[in-house]
Amino acid sequence: MKKSKVFLRVFVLAFAILMIFSTLAMTAPLKIAIILPHAITSEGWTKSGFDGLMKAKEDFDIETSYQENVSEGELKGALRGYIAEGYDLIIVHEMGYNDPTLEVAEESPDTMFAITYGFKAADNVAVTSGTNWQANSLAGAVAGLMTKSNKVGFIISNDSPVAHNFLNAGFIYGAKRINPKAEVITTFVGSWSDVVKGKELAKAMIKQGVDVIYSQCGVVNRAVIEVCEEAGIWAIGAVEDMSYVAPQTVIANALAPTEYLVYGVIKEMVEGTLKGGRVVKGIKDGAEEITFNPLLKDKLPENGEEKIMKLRQEIVDGDITLEQMQEELNKQNIKF
């Protein structure tokens, strides 16, 4: 008799606790995490992704967490950590981590994953990506527009297939489209943070006669703009509006805020519309843009802005695609 009474009590208690927890879980805010490849202090790519999360935290009732500087070897551990802690959405902010993320996602089908700028998706993996070329080709166009020496420079972080086929192709196309005589010099820093090397590369370009530089390289961007300021040549800001770094030097900004993508994914998650699959967002969707520095608008050549805007419209309307650009460049025998 006594034994069964105790048993009953325990059972009731356990049930009560379970109930409380389950209702808690129902009302509990969504738990959303982001995994970042570098430190959140590294400007550009990583910081921008982190900012997206922070912005979403302000706007929505969500619980957030982040883990920075996650190497490829640590990725699966970090993912599994978040899964074990019951996170609802885990955003992986690095395209290179696409495959390992898919592997872990397969293990836990109830968790939602998102990869920014990835290529492969799954039922519970949403890939959201910028075009990687639209803003860059407009940056190229601005460079082609502004150059007097007909030499423009493009500084990219790491040598990768994406860098060649998207970034560089877009930039060269844009420059040639506006200024067929423009010659593009592209170099790779090999890192997102090697400021010293980035500066050296920019200086070397200037020595070669380059008079417009566009840098797509995290923290290095700011340093490159400073070099341009010293040398008195034009610079084009990347990812975010960098006019404030050197108001008399940054002629335009090629915006592609990853912040926007991260924020977008979270918004969809909160609204319950996030689905697996790959979505590419470009200028049309407001994920990329070209803006001119209002202080320097008078420095643009005549009809300059119109020329750029015309190209922009073609891109928005889908009159020009990446494939067409690549084909065009191939026809002209231009390597990218």
């Binding site: 995490a33 430190a39 967490s65 982040y66 883990q67 920075e68 500087n69 996650v70 640590e74 551990g77 970090a78 950590g81 978040y82 802690e85």
Partner: peptide, 14 residues
């Protein structure tokens, strides 16, 4: 592993 866990759980900077 602990550093990662501390950051995930309570946001201790790396």
């Amino acid at each position: 592993v602990g550093a990662g866990a501390m950051q995930r759980g309570v946001g201790v900077p790396l």
